[in-house]
Design a protein around this nucleic acid. Structure first.
Lengths: 314, 314
DNA sequence: TAAAAATACTCCATAGGTATTTTAT
DNA sequence: ATAAAATACCTATGGAGTATTTTTA
C-alpha cells in the first residue's frame, strides 16, 4: 500500500467541486465548458470526490451524497451545501498561506531586530526608519540602543539581526560578519564657548596638543575613540585624556563644564547643547564612519531588504 | 493550457512537507523510510512544493526556500517554519471538514424541525426526546406545537420536517407524504366527578347517548374529532356536541365545570385535572392513533434517523 | 425528444520506484 | 569517509480527452 493514496482528498477535488456547486444550477456540462474541459471528466471528478468522502477508516461503508442525482441538472444536497462552505474557506486559507509565504520570502512580512549606538539615533536613524516603513509596512522593527561591543556579541548570538555602529578595526577581519559603511561624517572640535580657540572658524588639529581631551569610552565605544586617537597620532601628538564617557550628551556636558575639549562626529551639533561651540578641523579626511553589520550566514529576506534600503539612503 | 495545472498546490504537497518539516531534524531520508517510500521521490516532492510556491502570477520569478539546502540534513528556514504552521492548520481544517461531512451524511449533525399536537406532548414526547438526544446529541431539535391541519401545510412548505399528529383520513392518500403510526392509545370517557355514570369502572359507549359532548375542535384537530364521531356512529348514535375546544386542558376544564362529557386519548389522565374522573370504554378497539408524517421526497439523513428512533420507541 | 450525466475507451503526464552521482559533515 | 540529498532513468496509475449510452425533464 502506498502512502500516496488516491483515496485522499486533494485540493483539485475541492476546486472542481466549488466551481460546480457555486454555479447557480450546478450544471456540470456548463461548468466543464467554462473551464474548457470535458464534461465526462468533471463528472467523474465529482463522483470521485463523493467516493473519497464516503470512505471510512474501517467501519461500514457510508454514502456521502453531495449532489442529488435524480435531478437534471444536479442539485446540491444539504450535506453538499455545508461542504461547499468548508471547501471555500479551505481554498481561501490556502490562498492566504500561499500569499503569506511569498511575502515572507520577499521580506515583505517579518520581524527585524536592529541595534544602534547613540550616534546613529542622532544622525541617520530617522531617514532609515522613514524609508523602510514606507517600503515595508508589514515588517515589525525592533530597535534597541547598544554599545558597539555589545552589538557584535548580540549579532553572533542572534539576539539582533543588524547593527549600526562605529566599527572597530578588530572586527573588520571577522569572517562571520558582513559590514558596509552607511555614513561618513566629519569630526568636529567641541569647545566650551569661552575657550580661546573658539575665535577661529577652522582649527588645525595640531593646535589641540596640550588640551585636556574628553574621549568616548574606549571599552564601550571602541571604534570611535580609536579613530580619534589615531587621528591625533597622525598629526604628531598623543592626546591627554582626562575623562571618558559613553554617551554623547555626557561628553557635551563635560565640555560645557569646561572639563576639557572633545572630538565628535558632526551629528553632535544636532543636540544643540548650551555652553559649547563646534569648530571645523582644518585637515581633510578627518572623518568617522557609521557602519552597518550583519551575519554573513543570515539568509533572512528581511535583513536583505533592510540592507538594500540602508544602502540606497547612503 | 489546462485548468488542472500541475503548478497548483495540492494537499499531498502539504502532507509530505509537514511530515518532513515536523520531523525534528528534517531528514528526508528518515522520513521517507518511515513513510515507506523512496528518498528520491520525497526529495523531489519537496522541491516541487518549493517550485510551486515560487511561481508568481506573471511578475518576476521569486525564490521561496522552505529548507536551507546548504545543510545536511536539511534545515527549515524561517519562511518554512511559518509555512509549516499554516500547512498544519490547513490539514486539520480538511480533517474537520471531512469528519463533519461524514457526520452530516449519517444524520449525526444537523437540525430538525418537528411539529406536534398537544396530545403528543402529553404522551410520547418525553420518550422520543430522551432517546433521540441520547443517540444524536449534535442534532438541534426545534419543536413547535401545531394543529394537525397546520402541520400538513407546514410539511409541504418545508417549514417543518416531521409532524406528530392524529392523522385525518383525508391525508392518507397524499402521495407526497409518508406516515406511520407511532402510538395507539385507548380512548377514555371523561366525566365530572359527580356524574351519575362515574359509579362504574367500565361504561359501554352506548350509555353516552343523550350526554352533552365536548369535542376536540373539528377544524384544528380533525383526526381526533373525526374518530370520536365515527366511534359513536358505529354503536348507533350521533353525539350531541355542545362545545368544541382545541386544547386538552380546556376540554378537561369544561368537563370539570360540568358543561358535558368528553372522549379523550388515555394520555389525558396524565394531566390530573381536579374535578374530573376517567372511565374505561367497555367496547374493544376504541383506540386513537398518533402518527408520524414526513415528506417522501426528503432525503435528509437526520429525518431518517429520527424516524428510526421513533419507530424503535413504539 | 432534448439536455444532462454516466460509461467506455484511449493516451500521456507525472507520482513513484531503483540505481547512481553530487554535496555536506 | 560517510551520510544525506540530488539526479537520471524507468514504470504504471489515474487524470484528461473523444465517442457513446443512459437518465431525467
Amino acid at each position: 500500500m502506498n502512502y500516496r493514496d488516491s483515496d485522499r482528498l486533494e485540493l483539485q477535488d475541492l476546486r472542481y467541486f466549488v466551481e460546480v456547486a457555486s454555479h447557480e444550477n450546478c450544471s456540470i456540462t456548463d461548468v466543464a465548458e467554462q473551464l474548457g474541459m470535458a464534461q465526462s471528466n468533471l463528472s467523474s471528478s465529482i463522483r470521485n470526490l463523493e467516493k473519497k468522502l464516503s470512505l471510512r477508516n474501517n467501519k461500514r461503508k457510508l454514502e456521502v451524497k453531495l449532489f442529488n442525482r435524480n435531478k437534471r441538472p444536479l442539485q446540491l444536497t444539504e450535506v453538499g451545501q455545508e461542504f461547499l462552505q468548508e471547501a471555500i474557506s479551505i481554498l481561501s486559507a490556502i490562498d492566504r498561506a500561499f500569499e503569506n509565504t511569498q511575502q515572507r520570502s520577499e521580506g515583505k512580512i517579518g520581524q527585524l531586530n536592529v541595534a544602534l549606538t547613540s550616534s546613529v539615533s542622532n544622525s541617520i536613524l530617522p531617514d532609515i526608519l522613514r524609508k523602510f516603513r514606507e517600503q515595508y509596512p508589514n515588517v515589525k522593527l525592533l530597535w534597541r540602543e547598544m554599545t558597539t561591543h555589545n552589538q557584535l556579541q548580540a549579532l553572533r548570538s542572534h539576539q539582533i539581526d543588524v547593527g549600526l555602529l562605529h566599527l572597530p578595526k578588530s572586527a573588520i577581519d571577522d569572517k562571520e560578519l558582513g559590514f558596509t559603511t552607511v555614513l561618513e561624517e566629519p569630526l568636529v572640535i567641541v569647545l566650551p564657548e569661552n575657550h580661546q580657540l573658539a575665535i577661529t572658524k577652522q582649527i588645525p588639529l595640531k593646535e589641540l596638543q596640550g588640551e585636556k581631551f574628553i574621549l568616548p569610552d574606549r571599552q564601550l565605544v571602541p571604534g570611535l575613540s580609536q579613530e580619534i586617537l589615531d587621528l591625533c597620532k597622525k598629526v604628531g601628538f598623543e592626546p591627554k585624556v582626562t575623562q571618558e564617557a559613553a554617551l554623547m550628551l555626557t561628553i557635551l556636558g563635560l565640555v560645557a563644564g569646561e572639563m576639557g575639549i572633545a572630538l565628535l562626529p558632526a551629528n553632535a551639533k544636532n543636540l544643540r547643547r548650551k555652553g559649547v561651540v563646534y569648530r571645523k578641523i582644518e585637515e581633510k579626511a578627518t572623518t568617522v564612519k557609521i557602519d552597518m553589520v550583519w551575519r554573513r550566514s543570515d539568509e533572512s529576506a528581511v535583513v536583505e531588504q533592510f540592507r538594500k534600503v540602508v544602502r540606497e539612503i547612503r
